[in-house]
Nucleic acid binder design. Structure first.
Length: 772
DNA sequence: TACTCAGACTCAGAAACCTTATA
DNA sequence: ATATAAGGTTTCTGAGTCTGAGT
């Protein structure tokens, strides 16, 4: 098994791609000879000494692309053949600054860890998402006191309101200032140090190729910054030690030495079906954390391409699927109807599937299957209005025209339910995804987002047909298409209104100045023209020549100024039209990069105008797309093998029993959900009333208000009642005047948008298709 | 078989940081 | 030439989805 055909080919290819660059790293990393031999390093080492080195050094920045897409495929489920790395990096320990907090007039210098957390808190003390938020404050103080103060015999610090943080804030500011005013030498030295760390810990050897890691520093202790109304925001994230960490390496790879003296790794595994390099369990929320290769590493690219190919494959199944779910909408069976309606939402509105969440542990956010009655409204038209918090607690607000069937089905799903009941009580993400898989292998809800994002981009870009765009115009055109996709996917960013309007004002001034300058330029051209005319009339060759040159120069300057004005105008247009929209996420994750490459080639714009270096690194495989490459394409061109559509085999009886069980399960959870109070803004008084009435029993997804009542979150600040534990009592000094109101507001104000894209859908009902 | 849950991986915006444009 | 602001990029780590193993 030493040298099979494909293997030999692979090694030959590697020699070309590598350009001899990597055994440097190989030696530095102190790799085992054996391991290298298997990776084909040894042979390269011999070759390297032949002067190739100089060439590769000269082109040091030119990293050869590993054309993994031309390599023989890996075994099913295998992610790598060999894996070697230097472990993970632990950030430097906190160096105590010794600045005290002032508690009730008394200066208290804190022990190192307490100081580290306290300094972090002080830095976000007035930020309304963090330190100024009552839940954040409460969680922070509770954890900090219990974990850091009480053990250090500082239990007398019982009231966060009596803490004066100003010395810590002053220290932080001075530190910032110091950092800013470092000398060039200092900066360079730090840069070099950082680079050395990255050199050692920031890389991994996968199948003999040196790849960058995405993250390699273990998260330092800090305050948990959950998004939205996360119940744990502000809590302390403990230190992660080497003992918590599991490393994944090849069997024959050397175990990286543990960088912290006196410690050792938790475990070493050799799992070639996993992509991670290291993993540990974060102690606060219990979630798994991983160290991965960067997005530009071939191991990541492979997954990326597979994702887009799968989304692209959907085009051959989508008509049938759409026909089916539109028919299901009219079904008398609730499960069927809900499957149809949920599919429509996933497909047309590009919502996420909406897994169930635990309200005690996570912020309450929603997706398709978890939508509540209060999130939707049927309007005349018919129109459907949706308003809820999605992933990352980003507000989703959208009103769309809907087909009559959709409105009717939604009407039925809402009928007889309370505002806080689940709309889709008979289905779940699992049943919905199983339904999708009846049509296409591997199809799940998220594929629709990728599919529809890519289709939207391609559709929008196709509108440039026959426009003959300049490069600058093409860039704007692309950004506008990108914007449509971002709107479809609800990718948003928060805007600081104050600084935004200041920026727009400044831009306006710049535009004004540029326009004025253009006017002057035009006048100068006019003058130059007049001079030329005069010179011609006078018939002096020398003067004529001079005047000609002057006119040319004037014209050139005018054109340049026209360009400047145009650029500012375009920038301004983009700035306002993409004000609350984050374009990056769709570029990185949703739009097939081959569409971008193809279009750029078509309009003659360098792809670098719209893809930053990281994206270029991430999508080298997309460059194979020629200008005629299409995401949506005729079958024979695609090269995609169409698998036979899986016929629905489930008998009606079986399906019904499943539905029934599911429905009972859901009903139970619906009952739990009844504890939910409405999230809409109400007066505090009303809110409190409804809360009292509705809080019952256990619940998975409770309302913010109900939860708050249980947690006592409506306090602004907290007083510890004892030295030994986290028993907190409500502050009695009347200082927390009804501050619960602001805690109930979403962290980001809901955005009203005038228009929102939705996927263009053909409901081609295939009559040959069977249905219940 | 049906359901739950852990594990693994993709997707996400904020903040930090670095570069470029402009005054 | 220099300071500053704007803009773009990278880093960080939280929040989703989905699969498959275990019960």
């Amino acid at each position: 098994m030493m040298r099979s055909g494909p293997r030999a080919r692979l090694e030959a290819l590697r020699k070309v791609w590598r350009g001899g660059r990597e055994e440097d790293g190989c030696k530095e990393d102190g790799c085992k000879e054996d391991g290298c031999k298997e990776d084909g390093c040894k042979e390269d080492a011999g070759e390297k000494t032949t002067g190739k080195k100089a060439a590769s050094k000269a082109k040091k920045e030119e990293i050869p692309i590993r054309e993994w897409w031309n390599e023989p495929p890996l075994k099913n489920g295998q992610k790598w053949r060999s894996l070697r790395h230097n472990g993970v990096y632990f950030a430097e320990e906190w160096k105590p600054h010794g600045e005290p907090i002032i508690y009730d007039g008394e200066e208290i210098v804190l022990p190192p860890l307490a100081e580290q957390y306290a300094t972090q808190f002080a830095q976000v003390k007035d930020n309304e998402n963090y330190g100024a938020n009552p839940v954040f404050r409460r969680n922070f103080f509770k954890d900090w006191r219990k974990q850091c103060l009480v053990p250090a015999k500082l239990g007398r610090i019982k009231d966060i309101k009596k803490i004066d943080w100003s010395r810590l804030i002053a220290w932080s500011e001075a530190e910032k200032e110091r950092k800013k005013s470092r000398s060039k030498e200092e900066k360079d030295a730090e840069k070099a140090k950082k680079a050395a760390i990255k050199e050692k810990y920031g890389h991994v050897w996968i199948d003999g190729f040196r790849e960058e890691l995405g993250n390699f520093t273990i998260e330092p202790p800090g305050l948990f910054r959950g998004r939205g109304e996360h119940p744990k925001r502000g809590s302390l994230k403990p230190i992660t030690w080497p003992e918590d960490i599991t490393l994944n390496i090849s069997r024959d790879a050397p175990v990286p030495p543990c960088p912290l003296e006196g410690h050792k790794w938790g475990a070493i595994v050799h799992n070639d079906s996993a992509m991670w390099i290291a993993n540990w369990r974060e102690k606060l929320c219990g979630q798994h954390k991983y160290v991965w290769a960067s997005a530009g590493a071939s191991i990541s690219q492979r997954g990326d391409m597979a994702k887009f190919d799968k989304a692209r494959e959907l085009q051959y199944y989508i008509d049938k699927l759409r026909g089916d779910y539109m028919r299901k909408l009219k079904s008398k069976d609730a499960t069927s109807r809900q499957l149809g309606l949920a599919s429509w939402i996933v497909d047309v509105l590009a919502l996420r599937v909406g897994m169930e969440k635990n309200a005690e542990e996570e912020a309450e956010t929603y997706g398709t299957c978890s939508l509540l009655v209060e999130h939707v409204e049927l309007l005349e038209g018919p129109k459907l209005k949706l308003e809820f918090l999605g992933k990352d607690s980003m507000p989703y607000t959208n009103t769309v025209d809907v087909p009559e069937e959709v409105a009717a089905a939604m009407g039925k799903c809402l009928k007889g339910k309370a505002a806080t009941d689940s709309i889709f009580d008979s289905i779940s993400p699992t049943t919905l995804n199983s339904y999708f898989k009846e049509f296409m292998p591997g199809l799940s809800a998220k594929v629709f987002r990728t599919y529809n994002a890519s289709v939207t981009l391609e559709r929008e870009l196709a509108k440039s047909e026959g426009l003959n765009l300049s490069i600058e115009e093409a860039r704007v055109f692309y950004t506008n298409a990108n914007r449509e996709v971002a709107i479809l996917c609800n990718h948003m960013r928060t805007v600081n209104e104050e600084s935004f309007s200041a920026q727009v004002d400044r831009m306006q001034e710049r535009l004004k100045a540029a326009r004025k300058a253009l006017k002057e330029r035009k006048n100068k051209t006019k003058d130059a023209r007049a001079t030329l005319k005069e010179a011609k009339a006078e018939g002096k060759p020398k003067a004529l020549e001079k005047a000609k040159k002057a006119l040319e120069r004037a014209k050139a300057l005018e054109t340049k100024q026209v360009g400047r004005v145009k650029k500012i105008e375009a920038d301004m247009e983009l700035k306002t039209s993409t004000k609350e929209i984050a374009l990056g996420t769709s570029k990185i994750n949703y739009m097939d990069p081959r569409i971008t490459y193809a279009w750029c080639k078509k309009v003659g714009m360098p792809v670098e105008k719209v893809f930053n270096p990281a994206l270029i690194k991430k999508f080298p495989w997309a460059d194979v797309a020629g200008e005629d490459w299409k995401f949506i394409c005729p079958r024979e061109v695609s090269g995609i093998k169409i698998k036979r559509v899986v016929k629905k085999k489930k008998s009606t009886a079986k399906k019904k029993s499943t539905a029934k069980k599911k429905s009972t399960a859901k009903k139970k959870s619906t009952a739990k959900k009844k504890a939910t109070a409405t999230k809409k803004k109400k007066s505090t008084a009303t809110k409190k009333k409804s809360t009292k009435k509705k809080v019952t029993g256990k619940r998975k997804r409770g309302s913010a208000t109900a939860k708050k009542a249980a947690d006592g979150d409506d306090e602004d600040d907290f007083v510890a009642s004892g030295d030994d534990d986290d028993a907190f009592t409500r502050r009695k000094d009347g200082d927390f005047v009804a501050s619960d109101d602001d805690d109930d507001l979403p962290l980001r104000s809901p955005v009203k948008r005038s228009r929102r894209s939705r996927a263009v859908v053909n409901y081609a009902v295939d009559d040959n298709d069977d249905d219940e």
